[in-house]
Design a protein around this nucleic acid. Sequence first.
DNA 1: CTGTTAGCGCATTCAT
DNA 2: ATGAATGCGCTAACAG
Lengths: 340, 340
Amino acid sequence: MSFVNLKQLAGELGLSSSTVSRAMRDSYEISTATRERVKAVAQLLNYQPNPFASSLRNNVTKTIGVILPQLDNHFFSLAINGIEEVAQQNGYHVLIYLTHDSGEKEKAVSKYLMSGRVDGILLALATGTRSVSHLEKLKLTGVPLVQFDRVNKALQTATVTTDDFASSYQATEHLIKAGCRTVAHLLISESLSIGSRRLHGYQAALRDHQIPYDAGLVLNGRGSNDENLRLITRLLQQRPDIDGIFASVERLALSSYQACQRLGISIPKQVKIIGFSNMETASLLAPSLTTITQPAYAIGKEAARILFHAIIKHKPVLPTQSLELKSELIARASTGSTPR
Amino acid sequence: MSFVNLKQLAGELGLSSSTVSRAMRDSYEISTATRERVKAVAQLLNYQPNPFASSLRNNVTKTIGVILPQLDNHFFSLAINGIEEVAQQNGYHVLIYLTHDSGEKEKAVSKYLMSGRVDGILLALATGTRSVSHLEKLKLTGVPLVQFDRVNKALQTATVTTDDFASSYQATEHLIKAGCRTVAHLLISESLSIGSRRLHGYQAALRDHQIPYDAGLVLNGRGSNDENLRLITRLLQQRPDIDGIFASVERLALSSYQACQRLGISIPKQVKIIGFSNMETASLLAPSLTTITQPAYAIGKEAARILFHAIIKHKPVLPTQSLELKSELIARASTGSTPR
DNA sequence: CTGTTAGCGCATTCAT
DNA sequence: ATGAATGCGCTAACAG
C-alpha cells in the first residue's frame, strides 16, 4: 500500500515537511514559486495527505454519517441521492448505516458514531426504536444531528419531514370527493411520526366531511408483505362496503392493489386506492392507483444543508430550523434518472 | 465534542494507558481482574477509542468504499443492502460515492480513495467512463478492488455480474417462442459491459432461430427518459411490424410500456415486452410486462464477500475469483422488504 | 518566507 | 502483569 507521505515529499523537494504542508494548503506565507514547485512534485509523486493524520490533528473528519432503516425503498434511495450531492459539494464523505428497522442495530450504530468518527449525523428513525436514550446520549457528545422523515420530536433536533397531516387529509378528501363513503386506512406503526400524523390527517378529513370514524377500518400493517397482503384481503372480504383505501406507505398501497386483483375487485371502479409512493412506476399504475409523491430528493438535500450549516458555522442544530416540505398528489416522476 | 480518551480513562483507573489499551484489546498479558475492572469503567465513562488514532497507528481503516453510478435505481439500492450487511458482519464501515454516471466524478472519487482512506473498494463503473487509467492507478496503490454489475474486464480484478448473455438470450427466445417475429432491442450504452453482453444475447437468439438481424430494430437509449420515450414512440410508428420488445434496462422497459399505452398498442396482444427490472412493482404490471429480475442483493453480498476475503487474508483480488450469478425470468419480488 | 518542535490518541516496543 | 517511551502522518505554535 506504499503511499507517499509528507516527509518523503519534503525530502524529495529539499524542504521541511511543514513548508510542504503549508504549500499544499495554499498558506499565504509561502512564496508562489515554492508553492508551485511543491504542487508539481506532489502531483508527480501522486501525493495524497493521509486523512486520518489530519483528522487526528484537526479534530475534523470531513465525514458525515447517515443512519436509515433501509435502502430497498425508493424514498430513502432518493433521499441519499440528495444527501450525497450536498455532501460532495461541501467536500464531505458519507458513511452509511442501515438499521433494518431494528432498534438494537440503531443503538449499535449510534455507539460507533460516538467515537468522533463523523462531524455530523443524519437520521431516519427505525420502526423498532422504543426509547431514544441512545440518541440523547449521542446528542450529548455534541455531534450535530438532524432527523428526517421518520423523526422523534422529543429529541429536540432540527427535523425535515413532509406535510404528512396535510397530504393525508387531502388524500382522504380526494377519495371522499370521488364518492367513497367507506374509506379504509392502512396504517404503519403508530409510534412512528409518519404513522400517527397520517392517521390524524385521515381522521380529520373524515370528521370534516361528517363521516363517522370506524376503528374497524384501520389496519395496522407492520408485518411482512405476505402478512399484510393476507390481512388486507381479509379486511376486504369482511367489509365488502369498503370503496376506498388510503395507504400510508408504498408497500401497503401495492399490497392492497394486489389484494384487489386477487379478489377480482375492479380498481378504481369498485375500490379506489390512494397511497404514498415514490416510485416512478407508480405513474404507470395510474389511474388505478393514485399516489402521493414525497419530495424525497429535496428532503435529503435540505436535511444535509441544515446539517452542514451547523457543522461549518460550529453552531448547534436547533429544532426551530425544522422544515416541512410539500408532497404532490397524483403520481409524477420524482426526479430525473437515467437507465441502468 | 469532549470524548473520553485512553489517557483520561487510565487516569481514572490509576493505571497506565498502555495497560488500559491492552485490557481493552483482551491482551493475554493482562490479569482477568484488571481487564474486567478496566472494561467496567470504560463502559461507565462511555469510552470509545478514537478510530483515527487507531487507523493511523495500525494502518487499517475498517472502512470500505462503494462507488456507484446512482441510487435512484432499484438494482443498486438492493446491492447496497447486501454490501452493507456483509460489511456490518465484518465490523466494517461503508463510505458511499455516487458518480451520476460521470467519468469525471469517478476520477475525482478514485483520487479521494488513493489516500488510504479505505481498506477496499467496490465499484460499478460509470456509463461516462472512457479510459480506466484512473482505476489502474488506484489498483497500483494496492487497495483491493472488486467490480460488480458494470465492469471492465481489462482492469483485471474480480468481477461479480449477472448472466447477461444467457438471460438476454432466454428473454429473446421467450418472445420468439411466444410468436414474435420482429423483436426490437432497446440497448443501453454499448461500451458498457451489460450493454454489449445483452445485445449479443439478443443477436444469438435471433440467429439460432433463423431470424435475420436488423440493425434498424436496435435503439440506443442513452438519453433522458423523455428523449427515450420519443425515440421509442417513433420507432413503433415507423415499424408497425414490431411485435416484441426486449429492453436491456428497467427504465427502457417502462418507457416502452408507456409508449405503447400512448399509441394505443395493446400489451401483450399486439406487442409483447420483456425487460430487465428489479422492482417489486414489476410483478404488478405482469403479464403486460415480463421481467428479468437480477439477484441484486446477492450480487452486493458476493462482491463484498470477495472483497473482505482479500482484505482479511491480505491477498490480492484475482480475476479468477469472478462470479456470474443467475437472473430470474418472469417478475418476482427480489427480497423481503418492509413498508416505509 | 522557511525550519524546528511538539502533540493529536493509540498501540507497540522495550523495559522492569 | 504493568509502565515508560516511541512513532504512525500531519499541522500549528513558535522561532528565526
